[in-house]
Design a protein around this nucleic acid. Structure first.
Lengths: 125, 125
DNA sequence: TTGACATATGAACATATATTCATGTATCTC
DNA sequence: GAGATACATGAATATATGTTCATATGTCAA
């Protein structure tokens, strides 16, 4: 197997058996599902949106209350809520000129809490 | 309460009681903890990194195997692994010139699976 | 020691993103 | 109807991000 003339790479003989690698590759997330999963995490990957969801975990709120809570303009908040709405993380209920937002999937709070635990773990190094 | 001369805003009298709002504000994630939580989600918010973590959920892998699995250059993969390592999501073990990466916190796979469930839910609209 | 290899990293570039500002729409009060 | 309010949205801009390319570091074989 140690042919010096071979155009050898790690993937070909140093590491895992190519067939095993291929099997793993087949089981990896791909396509629209992969994109959707990453998209949800991307939405959670912004401090403003984390705070919005955190605020909504205490119950339904109107846009201007949310703006007060996160310390941003109603416009900025509305833009973010639009993104969260598109991913079905929050839902809007209209009453007159008010829009009351609430969590569309309380599972999200679980993600938040789990991640909070991760970052709270002491660094072993 | 309906004083027409008052410089009234939603936050002042239309919606929640200001004191209640203030209590919620005090309980919101802030500072370094907020930033860290968002940072972890931001890392998970990229298809390449999701695939890397997904691949590592099947066990330890060297960089070149990971590059094969995700279909990117070893350089690109190394850059991403560096970010994941900084957030203690993966850990590296060196053996000679090889670097074997593995999950540093299997909790992450839970986050992945939970999110997968969310995006798999049928759209009620 | 020489050359090949596995990985790491800095710079650069193209793309994506978050907020601001201006404006639009719908609703409410007077 | 007129003016104010609550929210939404398009454009613009400044910043962040992911990949590529070139190069560096450490390891192994001959």
């Amino acid at each position: 197997m140690y042919l010096s003339t071979m155009d050898a790479t790690c993937a070909e003989f140093h590491a895992s058996d190519p067939a095993a690698l291929e099997r793993i590759k087949e089981r990896l997330l791909t396509g629209p599902l992969l994109e959707s999963v990453a998209e949800v995490f991307k939405l959670l990957g912004d401090p403003t949106r984390v705070r919005l969801l955190d605020a909504l975990s205490h119950g339904e709120r109107c846009v201007c209350d949310l703006a007060t809570l996160v310390g941003l303009s109603e416009s900025a908040v509305s833009h973010q809520l639009r993104l969260l709405r598109a991913a079905r993380l929050v839902r809007a209920r209209r009453t007159g000129r008010m829009a009351f937002y609430s969590l569309d999937d309380h599972h999200v709070i679980g993600l938040l809490n789990d991640t909070r635990k991760h970052v709270a773990e002491p660094d072993p190094s």
